[in-house]
Amino acid sequence: MTLLPYLVAGWIFLVGLYGLVTSRNLIHAVGCLAVTQSSTYVLLLAIGYRDGGTAPVFADIPTDARVVDPVVQALTLTDVVVGATVTALLLALVIQLHKRHGTVDPDELSELKG
C-alpha cells in the first residue's frame, strides 16, 4: 500500500505516453495527453496524504484537527485548469487541421508533409 499510489501515477504517465506514440487519430492523442496529465494529479495528492487526516476545511472540525496537506490540493486545482485549457486549445487546432488537410491521422498528415 505504501507504494501503490506512486506506482499507479507512474503507470498512468507511461500508458498515456504509449497512447500518444501509437495514436492513429489526433483527437485520440489529445485524450491520451489528458490521461498523461492525470498522473500528476495522482502523484501530487498521494504525496500530500496523511494517514487518518481529514480534508483541510475547518467548517465543522476543530482547528487543531489532523488534516491532509492543503498545498498539494491547491497545486492540483491549478493543474486541472491548465489541463482543461490545453485540451481546449489543442482540440481547436485539430478542428482546423481537419478542415485544411481532411484527415486527423498523424501517419497521413506526416505523408502530406513529405
Binding site: L45, A55, Q73, T76, V80, G83
Partner: peptide, 13 residues
C-alpha cells in the same frame, strides 16, 4: 484522499 475541492473540479472538468 480527503481532497473535496479537487474532486469537485475534477468532476466538472
Amino acid at each position: 484522499v480527503q481532497a473535496p475541492d479537487v474532486a469537485l473540479s475534477q468532476l466538472a472538468v
